[in-house]
């Protein structure tokens, strides 16, 4: 009784606002965000502007000379045809990794989600490739794809006649994509597992009562609820596909005959290997365009989903 009265007294005290700070309310937010603005300016905006500028120059880093060449870098790049090839290869690689890893990742997530026990073991097992160093793993995979003596040629090669994947212009990209899938499935599965945890259980139960079979429960309840997870996994997987480099550098070096030369690998080849800074900048800008396109699609899709989520 007495404490309640004392507590009531505390609440009855007039509440005094803190004294006004020296910073005006309008200035305050800018002060707080300024460090980040500066960092973004130095590490994001400036390099971006520089890259676009570099497209129009012939730069010799060793001599330290810059020569304005107008559109020559771009004309040369188009003339060589390597950018067109790399765009096709990059899109092919994305098509070979994103849809399969999304589907398989979802299946894995559904499987793990349905387990009564041992879920955390399988989660860890599937996530391992995501956490592993890709270069090291690529070396293992290169060894598995080795002509004749490698595991792949010993098995798939014998059964289906598909041999020496890494030296075949038809099979080198699929080989790299296989490793991409191997790694990406775990990531997609984790995203979907998180999404599955958010599927309202009472809706699944309502659907069961309404006589919906397992498939219908998935299609009418689970899948709509997984929308945000699907967008997220698709966006991240697509960006991963755009950025693919380690596996290609380790397993195929873009070959044979540029059949697995993605934009990132071409960028490295142009800019670092040939030291053609201007040519590399052109590739970078193409890559940037792809990244912006992916971001735009993501923005649109997630806006639609946000609207869907609010209903």
């Amino acid at each position: 009784m007495t404490t309640a009265v004392a507590d009531a007294d505390i609440l009855a005290e007039p509440s005094r606002p803190l004294p006004r700070r020296w910073l005006s309310r309008r200035l305050e937010p800018y002060v707080f965000v300024s460090p980040l603005i500066v960092l973004i300016g130095i590490f994001v905006l400036a390099p971006g502007v520089l890259t676009v500028a570099l497209m129009f120059f012939n730069v010799d880093i060793l001599a330290g000379t810059w020569k304005f060449t107008g559109l020559r870098n771009i004309q040369q790049a188009i003339g060589r045809g390597e950018i067109a090839n790399s765009i096709v290869v990059t899109i092919e690689y994305a098509l070979l990794t994103v849809p399969p890893s999304m589907v398989l990742g979802l299946l894995v997530a559904l499987g793990i989600n349905g387990l009564r026990a041992g879920g955390s073991f399988w989660r860890a097992a599937y996530f391992l490739p995501v956490a592993a160093t890709l270069v090291a793993m690529s070396i293992v995979w290169r060894w598995m794809f080795l002509a004749r003596r490698g595991l792949v040629d010993q098995t798939v090669g014998k059964w289906m006649g598909l041999t020496d994947w890494l030296n075949s212009s038809d099979l080198s990209l699929p080989a790299v994509a296989l490793v991409g899938n191997w790694q990406q499935i775990g990531f997609v599965a984790i995203v979907y597992l998180a999404g599955l945890a958010g599927v309202p259980k009472h809706l699944l139960e309502a659907a069961r009562i309404d006589g919906a079979s397992a498939w219908h429960r998935f299609w009418h309840v689970t899948w709509p609820a997984l929308g945000p997870a699907t967008v997220f996994a698709a966006v991240i997987s697509s960006i991963q596909a755009l950025r693919i480099f380690d596996t290609i550098a380790t397993m195929t070096k873009g070959g044979p005959a540029a059949s697995s030369e993605t934009l990132t690998y071409l960028l490295w080849k142009r800019g670092i290997y040939y030291f053609d800074i201007g040519g590399g900048a052109v590739v970078t800008v193409v890559l940037l365009a792809f990244a912006l396109l992916a971001t735009w699609i993501q923005k649109r899709a997630s806006r639609r989903l946000e609207r869907a989520g609010s209903r």
Binding site: H202, A206, A207, R311
Partner: peptide, 9 residues
């Protein structure tokens, strides 16, 4: 159901 459990979509 107490919380309606309607299908939102």
């Amino acid at each position: 159901f107490q919380n309606y459990a309607l299908y939102p979509d």
